[in-house]
Simulated scan of single mutants.
Amino acid sequence: MEQQILDLVQNEKPYAWLYQFLIMVLVSMIPFAPIPVLAAYIASHHDFMPGLMINLLGTTTGSILLFLLSKNLLRSVALKYLTKHQYLTKYVELIQTNGFLAVLFGRLIPILPSAGVNLIAGISNVHVIAFIAATIIGKLPTILAFSLAGHQIASGNWEIILIIALYLVALFLLGRKIKQKWTR
Rank of each mutant, 00 (worst) to 15 (best):
Q152P: 09
D47Y: 09
L119R: 04
Q10F: 12
L88P: 02
N72E: 13
V92Y: 05
P31Y: 01
G58L: 02
T83C: 12
G62V: 02
W182Y: 05
I164F: 08
I178A: 05
G51S: 08
R75L: 12
L88F: 04
A16P: 03
R184C: 11
T60Y: 01
K80M: 12
K80T: 15
F105D: 04
K179M: 14
M53S: 15
I64L: 08
G58W: 03
V25F: 06
E93R: 10
Q152M: 15
A133D: 09
A130T: 14
A133F: 12
T97Q: 14
S70C: 07
A115H: 06
A78T: 07
G62R: 03
P36M: 06
M1F: 11
I163W: 14
S76F: 13
A102Y: 01
N72K: 15
M1V: 12
I160C: 08
P50Y: 03
S76G: 13
G138T: 00
L57G: 15
S155W: 10
L74A: 13
P50T: 06
F100I: 09
I129G: 13
N125Q: 12
R107S: 04
T83E: 15
F131H: 06
K179D: 10
Q3K: 14
M29C: 02
Q10S: 14
G62I: 03
I64R: 05
P141G: 04
L65N: 01
I160G: 07
I109M: 07
L144K: 02
I129D: 14
